[in-house]
Amino acid sequence: MLNNKRLLFILPLTAFLLLSSFLLSGLFSEPRYEVSTTVDKPLPPFALPDVMEPNKIITQNDLLGEPLLLNVWGTWCVTCAIELPYLTSLRVDGIKIVGLYIEQDLDPDFGAKGLTEIQQDIFTTLSRLGNPYSFNIFDQQRDYSLDLGVTGAPETFLVDAQGIVRVHHVGDLNEMVWKNKFEPIYATLN
């Protein structure tokens, strides 16, 4: 009888405490986007110019043949500047990196830059922080970023030789992220 009473006291209390701690942790969790819809699917088709040579059109077929990193970036993006030196060291280690370049302002009425100005900015930034890119695809209208499910810069995709996306990483790519998230999968691709 006494045991039963104690149980009647303890059970609701534990249930209450469990529920409270669950709800409390919810208060501090960040409801951010973490699903990636592109992983294990082929890159969506595109035909976009090279930002440095606008007459050259690049398509998804130009990315086939060897595994590579597709890195979404812009000279205006602060975090991208932080990851550029590390990405450059990856290139030195023999990893192919292709840039998907996006601009912040699209509307010419609100300070959108001309192409020569963009090229100049890219040149200056890469000379200063290192150039990890084989070439840069210019996503002028940011339509292709939308197709890839990009939420902002920087984001990085690991694409295998057949053009299948294997990893989608939101945020900067540093040594820890490379070791934990990219390298194990990259190692199986060669």
Binding site: E30, P31, R32, Q104, R142, D143, S145, L146, T151, G152
Partner: peptide, 23 residues
Amino acid sequence: CPKCQNQNIADSNAMIAEDMKRK
């Protein structure tokens, strides 16, 4: 808006929200 904390794309001025509105 995928980048923001509990905002719809009408309320957000984030780049991604602008892109989605345009789309």
